[in-house]
Simulated scan of single mutants.
Amino acid sequence: MHIPSLAPGAPIPEKARAIAYKAREAYGLVWVCLAEPAMPFPEWPDDAWNRPDHRVILVNTYDWKASAGRVVENAMDFSHFNFVHLGYTELADGPVIKPYEVTKTERGLNYAYDDGHLLRDYVIEFPFIVHDRKSVVKVGNVKTWSDNEESKPGDITCLSFLSAPIDDTFTRIYVFVGRNHSLDKADAQFTGGFDTVMEQDRVIVETQRPEQIPVSISEELHIRFPDAGAVQYRRMLRDLDKAEAFVP
């Protein structure tokens, strides 16, 4: 290494170096680890990305003026479906949320909700990835745009939201849809309503204040069953915040 403006033999300043980060290409994206310790590398539900009997596609990217935490909480929440997304992705049994269990894993959180038509199995890869894996459990009235008139029990459609924080109040969302059915049909039949649904969410999430999720869970109102997943997510953010505070 040589800096032309330095005298011959002068030591090279320690800061005159490139900073290397761990990086990996997967799922059509480049992933970069900006700090240690690194979280376990994300896994795709059902290993759908690599299976010939599944199809996964990138629907679109969306830029929101919101923190990644707020974006993730929106993707985690299903209690707003019958209000914000009326006519697009409603819960088949109505807006009142039944009790459900939230499990903490080494990667994040898991919880599931059965509305009588779809079993929605949520896989949260902490901190900023949400997979909403929807399995048809009973054929009936179509309630989501990702269903069709030929839906049958066992059909799986997985909506995946990968939130990349650009800064504290700006997030780029990569949205994927995967399925194990209707592989001979056009992808547009399963992605056509996404821009509308994401826009319905955006106008709400961008107005949330403060932009960052409060560290203290008690600072905002939570309803016992609708917000069970969000409460656990906020506890994990709080624990992460405390851990980072003690990093030397």
Rank of each mutant, 00 (worst) to 15 (best):
K185Y: 02
T191G: 01
G140F: 00
T196F: 09
S160R: 08
G192W: 13
V205Q: 03
D201P: 13
P214R: 09
A164D: 13
K152H: 03
H181V: 08
D184R: 10
G154P: 05
I204W: 02
N141P: 13
R172G: 06
S182T: 13
K152A: 06
V203H: 03
V205M: 03
K143P: 01
V215T: 14
Q208T: 12
T157K: 00
M198A: 15
I173N: 14
A188E: 15
S163H: 10
I204D: 04
Q208S: 06
V177C: 15
V203S: 08
F170T: 14
I173V: 14
K185N: 10
T191M: 02
D167F: 00
S216E: 13
P210N: 11
E206G: 08
W145K: 03
S216K: 10
E149M: 02
D155W: 02
R179E: 08
V205G: 03
W145R: 07
R179W: 00
V203I: 08
D167I: 03
L159K: 04
D167M: 02
G154T: 04
V137H: 00
K143Q: 05
G193R: 04
N141M: 11
C158E: 15
T169P: 00
V175F: 12
T157Y: 02
P165D: 13
R179K: 05
K185W: 07
K143S: 05
S216R: 11
N148F: 03
E150R: 14
T207D: 12
D187T: 07
I173M: 13
I213V: 02
G154Y: 00
L162V: 15
S160N: 04
E199W: 00
Q208C: 07
S151A: 12
T171G: 05
F194L: 11
N148R: 09
D201H: 06
S182H: 13
E206H: 08
Q189M: 13
E149K: 11
T207V: 07
S146G: 07
R179H: 01
D195M: 12
T196A: 05
N180W: 00
V137G: 01
E150P: 08
D147C: 01
E211P: 03
G178K: 02
I204C: 04
L162S: 10
S146C: 09
A186F: 06
R202E: 07
V137N: 06
C158V: 14
F194W: 12
V177W: 10
T157Q: 12
N180S: 07
A186H: 11
L162Q: 13
D201W: 04
G140M: 03
L159N: 06
V197C: 07
T169L: 01
Q200S: 05
K143C: 07
F161D: 02
Q189V: 09
R202I: 10
Q212M: 14
T144G: 10
I156P: 10
A188Y: 14
S160Q: 11
A164I: 11
G192M: 09
T169I: 05
L183Q: 15
N141R: 15
R179P: 04
I166V: 15
E206C: 10
E199M: 12
P210F: 01
S160W: 02
G193D: 11
A164Q: 14
W145V: 08
S216C: 05
V142I: 15
S160F: 05
K143L: 03
T207G: 06
A188F: 14
K152V: 08
Q208H: 05
G193L: 01
V203F: 01
V177H: 15
P210T: 12
T191W: 00
S182M: 11
A188N: 14
V139T: 14
K185C: 03
H181A: 06
P153W: 00
